[in-house]
Amino acid sequence: MDVLLPPHLPKVYGEVMSEMPRDLYIPPDALEIILESFEGPLDLLLYLIRRANINVLDIPMAPLTVQYLAYVEAMRKHNLELAAEYLLMAAMLIEIKSRMLLPRIPRVDEGEAEDPRAELVRRLVEYERMKAAAAKLEELPQAGRDFEWVTVWIADKVVKRQPEVSLHDLQVAWLSLMKQVKIHQHHKIHREELSVREHMSLILRRLQGGGHMLFEQLFDLTLGAPGLVVSFLAMLELAREAMVEITQSEALAPIYVRLPDAVTL
């Protein structure tokens, strides 16, 4: 006759274990109890009340105090740091429980004895309202969690910036001048002293009338290559000292030179 074994008996390698092995060692911390996380003593009390389906206006203090103290003791045994408010609430529950056992003295003005649970009920009702309001606020869309802010920058005034004159543009203009000077070059042999400061003054006098002048118009092609070199050095020195402005409307466009507004001769 087959013997039916209880369905809860464990099996190891296909063999049923009817009793616990004698040499089995279970560490003390092998069984870990996970408690609910509460935001405070009122949250714990509200959890116990709702779990037991108790009316918050008529709280049975004896079983509630026992369950609360059991939770506090469990947290203490598992080395959890208890806040002072948990211990204060435990003392308050014990006091209310003790007052419930004593005969109530009616008030002279109202003729009705004060309920020791009144203050606790008031705090629980207010906490439940605040918790419900916080849950509704949490359901609202939040920036960074449900959506992201999009920022659009609108400029009040758009200023068209002229392209800056690069060194390559000056090099191309210089090579163009060198090609032209070869055409107008006169074969003269003489020695003359050329001054960069003097050519700087000549360029400033040509620009004194105001307005823009073409880059090429500021050079005297009859001076030959040495004169053009000195004039070009004078132009670079004026630009370095911010005594002239060199502009260009677009890439590969003609280069213009003019006096800044702050420069007066």
Rank of each mutant, 00 (worst) to 15 (best):
D43K: 09
P116K: 03
L45D: 07
L102Y: 05
N55M: 02
P103L: 02
L46K: 04
L87V: 08
A70W: 13
Y127F: 12
V72Q: 05
L44E: 00
P63I: 00
R129Q: 10
L137S: 08
L42P: 04
A91N: 09
E85I: 02
K97I: 05
E39Y: 00
N55Q: 10
P116L: 09
A133P: 02
P116A: 11
D115F: 01
R117I: 07
E85A: 08
E36L: 09
G111V: 00
L87Q: 04
L137G: 02
P106S: 07
N53H: 15
L46S: 13
K131G: 02
K77Y: 12
I59A: 00
D29N: 14
D23P: 03
E110Q: 07
P28K: 13
A132F: 00
R104A: 14
M89E: 08
L57S: 11
V72A: 07
D58P: 01
A90H: 00
E138R: 09
R104L: 08
P103Y: 00
K77G: 03
I34G: 03
L24R: 03
I26H: 06
M61R: 05
E39C: 07
I54H: 03
H78E: 12
H78Q: 13
V108G: 03
I33H: 05
D109W: 06
L93P: 00
Y86K: 01
K136P: 01
E139G: 11
P60G: 02
R129K: 15
E126I: 01
A135F: 09
E138F: 04
G111Q: 08
A134G: 10
F38M: 13
G40K: 13
P60V: 05
M89D: 00
L35M: 10
R117Y: 05
I54S: 07
L82C: 07
Y71L: 12
I33N: 01
I105D: 06
L137I: 05
P41S: 14
I26E: 06
S98W: 06
P103C: 07
A134S: 11
E32S: 10
M130T: 03
P27D: 15
L137T: 05
R76A: 15
R122M: 02
E95S: 13
L44V: 03
Y68H: 06
A118V: 10
L57H: 11
D23H: 14
K131M: 13
E36W: 06
E139S: 12
V66F: 15
R51E: 13
L93G: 00
